[in-house]
Design a protein around this nucleic acid. Structure first.
Lengths: 163, 163
DNA sequence: TCAGGTTAGTCCATAAAGTGGACTCAGTCC
DNA sequence: GGACTGAGTCCACTTTATGGACTAACCTGA
């Protein structure tokens, strides 16, 4: 299967992976949330090759996750900013941070401390149910295939039942 | 920078990326949460090469995200299961699903419907603050660098301030 | 007994992607 | 005019992934 074929699948994870599924995109995204905007800053901070950085940013731009905005004329220079779609990836990076902090800095102060501006507490956001407001984890959730309906092909990769 | 060097960084996102940063790991993980356990099932469902699948599973095993368990003797055969550490990646996959559903199935029924077993509602989990219980997004959170303390090297990649 | 099936892999030649370092372009500052 | 800045491009080279055939160890039915 080719790289870009992923974005043609009907699975949401597959389509997300088409943009984010490589060594650098998640780190890049994380740097965006930390306020980085410029080509050379990304390159210096992450230490990836300039070629790869160009390709990643282009891909993210194609998928409307980031946009280029002019920050200077003569010569015209662009910086990169997250779009609304890009900012909506925040829960992803948050999950990565929380997980990394738990398993790689167990008991220690994690490298980055996060504060909820609204209430002023230092926290790690948690996943919860919008209906009953309880915390959710893998075992309290169950996925099922969308009911078959005309026009929609069956899923290649639905849930699996065990006896 | 080399692949495995990522796991030596002190950034949680970098360390997580060392295990998850490629085209297949996220999809693989998602299949795990859907109940898939066997080598051939992963291979058939995802369509990745057997070699790559072997390498990915080995990497995840090395990082204690999955474990091999015997499910049959003579011949001894193993299947793969998530460890507790692996199950803790649920928020990550949930975030990916929610995001994909929002941007690639806008208004439509997403391919997989998720139910919160505890309360019985079909939902998409949301990220919230464990202190004030409000929903959080990128703009309501602010990261800061951990205070410098003896023995700890400064961060390579801390937050960036803008004027 | 023997052909065919099952399952989790390995092997290998080829193709695709990433790397590092030099180079470009347009303009500024001294 | 020479050095500097910042966002890239170019290219030879290395690292990874791919697809398809093949193996090992057993079971099943004829």
């Amino acid at each position: 299967m080719k790289w870009e074929d992923l974005s043609e699948q009907q699975c949401s994870v597959a389509r997300s992976s088409a943009v984010l599924g490589d060594r650098w995109s998640l780190l890049l995204l994380s740097d965006f949330f930390l306020g980085v905007r410029r080509f050379d800053d990304f390159q210096r901070r992450l230490g990836l090759s300039r070629t790869t950085l160009t390709n990643r940013l282009k891909l993210m731009e194609d998928h409307d996750v980031v946009k280029r905005v002019v920050y200077q004329h003569q010569p015209t220079r662009y910086e990169y900013r997250l779009t609304a779609k890009g900012r909506d990836l925040f829960p992803l990076i948050s999950a990565l941070l929380t997980w990394g902090d738990k398993y790689y800095f167990e008991g220690l102060t994690p490298p980055i401390i996060r504060r909820h501006q609204t209430c002023g507490h230092d926290i790690q956001p948690v996943l919860s149910c919008p209906e009953c407001h309880e915390a959710v984890d893998a075992r309290s959730m169950r996925g099922r295939e969308r009911p078959a309906s005309a026009g929609l092909p069956p899923l290649e990769r639905g849930p699996v039942k065990h006896s």
